[in-house]
């Protein structure tokens, strides 16, 4: 019973940690827009956490510049299990308009497992919310897999 309660809760209180790996700030603003009264992601339990140790979902935006790559990987390692990685916008997925630059190392899935990708430049808040919600469901699956 106790385990079931924990499993159920896993998808209902996903805390986000947002990493900007060289993004133009567009996606970042849209992510914050999700928390505003108009979209109100908090009704699903989403909350922005201040440190990776508290996070369930890590949202990565930006094309993974070479300066930020190492920091990104280190921070991702510090998130406790079960965790999800969501790539936000087209940049971490493909490099977008920065592709081919000497200082850009996209895509993100070269360095870690990405659970959900929300594409778009920038994605709409509705799309972001859907992506995050999917990530929350994946969290629950991961938690169940951890305690089989």
């Amino acid at each position: 019973m106790f385990n079931k309660l924990i499993n159920d809760s896993a998808s209902k209180s996903p805390w986000l940690y947002h990493i900007n790996s060289g993004s133009c700030n567009g996606c970042d603003i849209e992510l914050v827009a999700c928390l505003t009264p108009r979209y109100d992601a908090e009704r699903f339990g989403f909350k922005l956490a201040g440190t990776p140790r508290h996070a369930d979902i890590v949202v990565v935006s930006g094309p993974v510049t070479s300066q930020s790559k190492e920091r990104l990987i280190r921070t991702l390692a510090q998130v406790p299990e079960p965790k999800c990685v969501v790539s936000l916008g087209s940049c971490p997925k493909s490099g977008n308009v920065f592709k081919g630059s000497y200082s850009v190392e996209a895509p993100l899935d070269d360095y870690c497992h990405v659970d959900v990708s929300v594409a778009g430049c920038t994605p709409k808040p509705e799309a972001i919310m859907e992506g995050l919600y999917k990530a929350a469901l994946i969290l629950k699956e991961k938690r169940e897999a951890m305690h089989k």
């Binding site: 309660l5 924990i6 499993n7 159920d8 809760s9 896993a10 209902k12 209180s13 109100d40 908090e42 009704r43 699903f44 339990g45 369930d56 406790p80 299990e81 079960p82 938690r143 305690h147």
Partner: peptide, 18 residues
């Protein structure tokens, strides 16, 4: 806003984490 049970979910979720 979140449901009234939200802090409870938060608590149990945290119990299940590493």
């Amino acid at each position: 806003g979140p449901p009234l049970r939200q802090p409870m979910y938060d608590f149990f979720k945290l119990l299940g984490k590493e």
